[in-house]
């Protein structure tokens, strides 16, 4: 390959990457500027690409309704609760599938679990509502969404954890047995630390799904418990949508996942650089 063609390919690649970057960052940029516009400015036929006046007070006025802040708290409780439940159940199931495939029901059971993610959620929306309505915890509670989201998150956690456990050398566990650890202590002391980086990634995926879920939350909760996703559409004035407040609130709602990612990223990276067994 001549140097000239190499440079040409490089230039084309950079142009493509630039366009891609604009395409992905534009919605974030739009959210950001809209959050600080006035309501009138958001409704112009010819949109403005920079706020005329920066309305920082939008960030405060979204909390004029005091329950709006508690919606963030509710979302946090549900997402965290669901993540913990998904991880505990998914890890145990994944471990069983990885180490004792025959006793754990084999490939068929593992596939059946995964198949729970294959149907369109909207298809079970109504049956789920009646099912949960008949339960002691009803529909409008923390527990209802924590359990409901397991339908989506637990198969994911089970399958990913199964892969991570398969990759963790079995010999290390056996070495721990011979050191005198019972299977449960060996699991906690040796196997769990090995899959921890993977586990953190799974936790993030589960948490983000539960945090952002709207469809089921909209139908199930609303009075006792409100998640932030069902609060966003409530920023209206008569028949007019208050885009600026919706964007301001959703921007605030983006902060926890971003903070979580920055906080946990270094554990995920560190896990990859651990040398396992012999090199």
């Amino acid at each position: 390959m001549s140097e000239q063609t190499a440079r040409l390919i490089r230039t084309l690649l950079l142009i493509f990457l630039g366009l891609w970057l604009i395409l992905t960052l534009f919605p974030l940029y739009w959210q950001f500027i809209t959050a600080f516009k006035s309501a009138a400015e958001t409704n112009r036929t010819i949109p403005s690409f920079w706020p005329e006046v920066w309305h920082f007070e939008n960030l405060v006025s979204v909390f004029a309704e005091p329950t709006n802040f508690s919606a963030l708290v509710d979302s946090f409780i549900i997402a965290t609760g669901n993540t913990i439940a998904s991880l505990v159940l998914g890890s145990l199931a994944g471990y069983a599938f990885a180490r004792f495939p025959r006793q754990a029901g084999g490939e068929n059971l593992a596939f059946w679990i995964l198949s729970n993610r294959m149907f369109p959620p909207v298809a079970v929306l109504v049956p789920m509502f009646f099912l949960f309505d008949a339960m002691p915890w009803g529909t409008d509670s923390y527990l209802s969404l924590i359990i409901l989201y397991l339908v989506f998150n637990m198969p994911l956690a089970t399958w990913l954890m199964m892969v991570f456990f398969r990759d963790a050398p079995r010999e290390l566990e056996e070495a721990a047995y011979l050191d005198g650890y019972t299977p449960l202590r060996a699991f906690v002391k040796v196997t769990l630390p090995l899959v921890l980086p993977g586990m953190i990634s799974v936790a993030m995926l589960c948490w983000i799904f539960a945090w952002n879920e709207y469809l089921f939350a909209n139908l199930f909760v609303g009075t006792q418990v409100r998640t932030f996703t069902i609060v966003i559409p409530t920023f209206t004035h008569g028949s007019q949508t208050l885009w600026n407040l919706q964007m301001a609130f959703s921007m605030i709602a983006m902060l926890p996942p971003v903070a979580l990612f920055i906080l946990l990223r270094r554990y995920m990276v560190r896990g990859l650089s651990l040398g396992v067994v012999k090199g």
Binding site: P169, E171, E174, A176, V276, V277, K278
Partner: peptide, 10 residues
Amino acid sequence: TFESYALYPH
């Protein structure tokens, strides 16, 4: 002792 040594990497 294991052929692979099986040391705990963490």
